[in-house]
Each structure stands twice: as structure tokens, then as C-alpha cells.
Simulated scan of single mutants.
Amino acid sequence: MTAYMIFTRESTQDQAALDAYHSKVRDSFDGYPHKVLAAYGTQQMLEGDPAEATVILEFPSVTAARAWYDSDTYQQVAQHRLEGSRHRVMLIKGQ
């Protein structure tokens, strides 16, 4: 069953670290089937506080999404994201 991973960047602490993340994250997807549904597009907040940025990824399953997210390759790249910004990341099982 399809799964969706949603990243919302709440704030940036270190732009250089965030730039390092952005320069490396694409390579972390090699071998992991996924689809980028939305990335850094214009947001229209209808309720709540706005995020600086949002990314929505689609994976074939929760297991596939966790395989990428938990991979050593992504976790090494993610250290730059964690150093450079405050994010919320959620995984949602599709219908």
C-alpha cells in the first residue's frame, strides 16, 4: 500500500549545513523507488502557522519508505538537515 513522507521545515538554523543536505540528498534515493509529489512550491496556508518549506514524497509502501529513511546513506545525509534546520517529518500510510 502506498505511503507518503512529508517533510516540513519549521526554521533554518545553519544555511551552510542545509545547503550540504540539499546537495547530497538526491543520491540517497538510488535504489529506493519513490516519487516527489511536491517540493518547495508556493504554499497557501489555510490554517495554522506556515512552514518555511514542504516536501511530499510517495513510496510504494511504508516498508519501502522506512528502508530509505533508515538507510545508512540517508541517515548520514540527514545529519546536515538536523544540524541546519528544525523539521517535522511524518510517514502516512495511504488508502
Rank of each mutant, 00 (worst) to 15 (best):
M1W: 05
T2R: 15
A3E: 00
Y4K: 03
F7I: 08
F7Q: 12
F7R: 10
T8E: 11
T8R: 07
R9I: 15
S11D: 13
S11V: 07
T12A: 01
Q13M: 13
Q15W: 03
Q15C: 06
A16P: 00
A17L: 00
L18A: 05
A20K: 11
A20M: 11
Y21S: 07
H22N: 15
R26N: 13
R26K: 12
D27W: 04
S28N: 12
S28Q: 13
S28K: 15
D30Q: 14
Y32D: 02
P33G: 08
K35P: 07
K35L: 08
V36N: 08
Y40A: 15
T42Q: 14
Q43G: 10
Q44Y: 00
M45R: 09
M45C: 08
D49F: 01
P50M: 10
A51K: 08
E52S: 06
T54G: 12
T54I: 15
V55W: 04
V55K: 01
I56V: 14
I56P: 07
E58F: 02
E58K: 11
V62H: 01
T63W: 02
A64L: 07
A64S: 12
A65I: 06
A65S: 13
A65P: 10
W68T: 03
W68V: 04
W68F: 05
Y69E: 15
D70Q: 05
D70W: 02
S71P: 07
D72L: 14
Y74I: 10
Q75R: 15
Q75K: 13
Q76L: 04
H80G: 03
R81Y: 03
L82P: 01
L82H: 12
E83F: 00
G84S: 07
V89D: 05
V89W: 00
M90Q: 09
I92G: 01
K93V: 07
G94W: 08
Q95Y: 11
